[in-house]
Design a protein around this nucleic acid. Structure first.
Lengths: 259, 259
DNA sequence: CGTCTGGTTGATACGACTCAAATTTGGTGG
DNA sequence: CCACCAAATTTGAGTCGTATCAACCAGACG
């Protein structure tokens, strides 16, 4: 009894990979585009939970595509403090173009155990050369990433601890929804309160208190690695959440592939 | 008696525009490359201090290049709070590729009166097609922008108010230095304490106190729109500043134009 | 069954905010 | 050149949000 009534209908067809689902929030892809994205998953790698995928100071080479699990980009201070600067979920790409820089200025760590695909620069160039629609969608994706970073700055700089936590949870929920990883009003949510603390610039203790308050207010429940949002609209208000930065409304529809 | 002894020697040649100086922190440009960058300044626009260049919700069209003055990207919350998410100084480009998005998710405001150049998408495409070295440098520049956003997240999330202010000032000083806008250990610094507050997520009152403390500690002086840093190394330590994110060490030198 | 990681609770401390007023600076027009 | 005004900075007193520290508890796992 858990048919995913909310995901895109997909009768019989092979399941679209998360990255395709995400890019289709921008423009409709052709079967050929999707197949090309499928083919990016040739060079797989598995990473254990809590290991680093790549560390500050190393030389960036391939692009990574998250297939399964959660990861985070983070930066650390000499005094040991850590800031998570973005969360990566299935369908997210990291380090497009990064070969231009000589060394990483931040690290990427696995939150859960991870399945990622390594994509060489050549592969990526071939993809964008042969699939201009995908190329455009990748630019859109990169711009959305940047917009998300800006929204996080707003979050850290101006929102109260309460709205800050609410905002983060809601963003993740919506991002997971676009890649088909929600069921109704809930989704897996493997980040620990410690991770949430590092992402919001709060302490784990305070995150815990905010989560309890949010729960008491009927805005969300987080338990056993599972998030449930009883009332999206109420949470949206509490978080002062404006979804415009996610640019999810098919802005590139003029490029849509004919069905 | 104000020969700028610290800028790149430039005997008799026409002065390099700020954007060229900046890109040359990545790779040495040819005379032709520089000339092409010069030609980007055909469509000029002047903006008064404290006016907006473009507002959230508007349709992004051209790319802007800051020629003179300071600007900032910012986002606001329904309750009126404002977060500056980046500061723009001469040589900075905004919204490369932004035409892909249908609407701006943030605004750009002038801090001082501003001279900017408007660059059409076609102009930009011609430039990158004809000047691959510049194209690479622009990619580098965009990556540095993103790295800077990440560093700001670290700043807001993990540094104390004291280091946070120190870090911001030092970053600006170094960025201005790469475009030749410092004289020795000082530079113009037109941002108000209010601007600094909005950029650091502090209140103006508290920024004021931190500046006084930094001054008392001999780390910097800010007065009459002018910044002076007596001891860069001491400030670097206090700010826990790691310059790696600015990627200023000619990482693309393998692409250098022959002199 | 014991260990470990993550979550929860309470008491206390402090960094940063708020509010309000005074002062200085910079710009403008007489 | 001075008088005036608005904007920016500075100061002080009091408060509040979030951090800190230290236990304790609950599941997950070997």
């Amino acid at each position: 009894m858990r048919t995913s009534t909310l995901s895109t209908p997909n009768n019989g067809a092979p399941p679209r990979p998360a990255v395709a689902l995400k890019l289709e929030a921008f423009t409709r892809l052709s079967g050929d585009d999707v197949a090309a994205l499928q083919r990016l998953t040739r060079n797989l790698r598995t990473i254990e939970a809590r290991r680093d995928l790549i560390r500050e100071g190393e030389v960036p080479v391939q692009t990574h595509l998250i297939l399964k699990g959660w990861a985070c980009r983070y930066k650390s201070l000499p005094d040991g403090k850590r800031q998570i600067v973005s969360l990566l979920v299935p369908g997210d790409l990291c380090d497009l173009n990064n070969h231009v820089l000589r060394e990483m200025d931040h690290s990427i760590g696995a939150i859960t155990s991870l399945k990622v695909s390594l994509i060489s620069r050549d592969e990526m160039e071939a993809l964008t050369a042969e699939h201009p629609r995908v190329a455009q969608a990748l630019i859109w994706d990169a711009l959305v990433d940047q917009a998300t970073q800006r929204e996080w700055l707003l979050n850290l700089g101006q929102r109260s601890a309460y709205s800050r936590v609410a905002h983060l949870m809601l963003e993740l929920f919506l991002r997971l929804r676009t890649v088909g990883l929600t069921i109704g009003q809930s989704c897996d949510f493997p980040a620990t309160q410690n991770d949430l603390a590092d992402a919001t610039g709060l302490t784990a203790v305070h995150v815990n208190r905010m989560l309890q308050e949010l729960r008491a207010d009927g805005l969300l429940e987080l338990e056993r690695r599972r998030l449930f949002i009883p009332d999206l609209e109420a949470l949206r208000t509490a978080a002062m959440f404006n979804p415009n930065y996610l640019h999810l409304d098919h802005e590139g529809r003029s490029l849509d592939a004919s069905v």
